[in-house]
Structure formats: structure tokens, C-alpha cells
Design a protein around this nucleic acid. Structure first.
Lengths: 142, 142
DNA sequence: CCTCAATGGTCAAGCTGCTTGACCATCGCG
DNA sequence: CGCGATGGTCAAGCAGCTTGACCATTGAGG
């Protein structure tokens, strides 16, 4: 099998495992697209337009996704401190809990990789992956 | 950045590049989901139910996807040699051409990785990825 | 100061891809 | 054979995204 196929297979596996892990930890009705959004919102929040750019969808779609996350209690809209047109979307405590659950699920998967590759092997894998995707995680899916 | 995030970032990048490459080679209206399907159909064809299992969707959804691919001329339905209920979905010449285009686009991306990691580095990357996703490419996206 | 094009955001309508539910034809075990 | 299991399609509904229109606010230039 080619490298490219292996990469896609591994990523698909990981995505599925993170999603399953998040669900198993009690967060229902949450989709991979929400994970994309959370990773963008996590540090300090973001505007709808920024989120749209991150997810590569229209700002209307991003706005709808935010609306859904607000309904589910994972994020809230706050007035933007520097621009009265904009609104800052930030994670609620539930949003942070869900993000932590995703990180735990990812860590579980990585722990299994360490069983197969060793800690050093995982570190080298990480190093190589970072060098071929230098732009950073444009869309850190789950 | 964590290994998991790096993996998802690299896979997202690769997916986008393959898709762009396929479009650039003149195959319009083709979506990543079609690529998933092609990799399953490529060797010897598959039934709709097998395809559905591969894509992790319902067989109705797979059937609709096949219908669309037939309309676009990428696949055709043939009677199944051993089961009169089933129909074997196989790639047409256009389907093979599209698959080759995807492989070329993937090879282009991998060539750039080789610039950054060296041939040996890519081989090691491949080896490690295969060991953490041993089940094979359940969903070799593009 | 104003003016006004650019920007952030939402509302509304429409489309596409997927799901559930029902159904028919064929298979293959007892 | 008889009949549950399996492969496939038709039909209806829904969820998520898009395009298009619109309003409020911004900020650079007269």
C-alpha cells in the first residue's frame, strides 16, 4: 500500500476513534465538524467569519453551526471587545469538557501507537508529519 | 502540536491536494466520496452492499452514489456472475482514468514529502503508518 | 466631521446527500 | 420445496451546506 493511502487510512481510523471516544464519554449529538470548530475556538474564541475560514465553509454555514452549538450549550456568543459588528464565539465549560474528552480519546489512540512503535517511534512519526504539513492543522478534524 | 493533530492536518492537506489535482486534470464534479468508492471498485468491482460497507453508509446511499457515477460515465453495472440478485459495479475506462489521475496527484504530493524527508524518511513514515492502521485503508479518502 | 465602500453577521430559500421505511427478487439452508 | 436471509431499488424526509439579499458597523478619504 502507498504512503498516501496509509496516511488516509490512519487518519480515518483516528477520526473514527476520537468520535467514538467522545460519544462514549457522554457527549451525544456531536459531529466531527464540531471538533474542527472547537480546535479553532479553544484558545480565545473566534468570530463567525474566522471560524468559516477555518472550516472552509461559508459564513452562513458557520453561523448555523454556531447556533447549533449554542443550543447544545457548548459555546456562547459574547459581544466583541473591539468591534460592535462582530461577536466573539467562546467555549462554555461544557465546550471545554467536550474538548478535553476529545483529547483524552486521541491520547488513548496514541498510547496504542506507542505500543506498536515505541515512544521514540511515535515522536519520529510526529516529527515527520509536522514536516510534511508545515502549515499547521488547517482542519484538525475529528 | 500533538501527533494526532499532525496526522489529521497532514491527511486534510493530502485530501485537498488530491482533489485539486484530480480537478486540474479535467475531472469535474467529482467529490472525495467518489475517491473512496473508486479505491474499493478498482481491483475487480464490488456490489452495492460491499461498497456501502466500505464507505460506512447505508446501501441506499451507496446505490445513489453508484447511480450518479453511472450517469457521469465512471462506472457501469454488470450482472453478477454468481448471484442473480446482485449487480457488480465496475469502473469504466473513464473511471480508471480518473483513478490514475488521483494516483498521480497523490504521487506529486509524496514527491514533495521526499524533498523534505528523503526517500528513506518517506519509507519509514509509510512503515509506521501501516503499523498503526493495520486494518488497511478502510476509507482511503481523498 | 461626513460619506460610502468594505466588513461582520443574520435571514430566507433552495439543493444535495444521507437516512429511515417499505418493498420485490433471489438465494440457500432445513 | 418453504421460508428466513440477503441484494437492490423506490420513496419520503431531514440535515447541512450554498447562494442571494439584507442590515449594522467600521474606517479611510474628502
Amino acid at each position: 500500500m502507498a504512503v498516501s493511502a496509509a496516511l488516509l487510512a490512519a487518519a480515518g481510523e483516528l477520526t473514527r476513534r476520537i468520535h467514538d471516544g467522545v460519544v462514549a464519554r457522554g457527549f451525544e449529538g456531536v459531529r466531527p465538524a464540531h471538533g474542527f470548530a472547537f480546535t479553532r475556538l479553544a484558545p480565545d474564541g473566534a468570530t463567525v467569519t474566522e471560524l468559516a475560514g477555518h472550516l472552509r465553509v461559508t459564513k452562513q454555514a458557520a453561523s448555523q453551526l454556531v447556533e447549533e452549538l449554542v443550543r447544545r450549550g457548548y459555546v456562547e456568543r459574547r459581544p466583541h471587545p473591539a468591534d460592535a459588528r462582530a461577536r466573539l464565539v467562546v467555549l462554555t465549560e461544557a465546550g471545554w469538557a467536550c474538548t478535553r474528552a476529545a483529547e483524552e480519546a486521541a491520547a488513548d489512540a496514541v498510547a496504542e501507537w506507542a505500543d506498536a512503535l515505541g515512544e521514540g517511534g511515535v515522536a519520529e512519526l510526529r516529527d515527520r508529519l509536522l514536516r510534511i504539513a508545515p502549515g499547521g492543522p488547517i482542519r484538525p478534524v475529528w
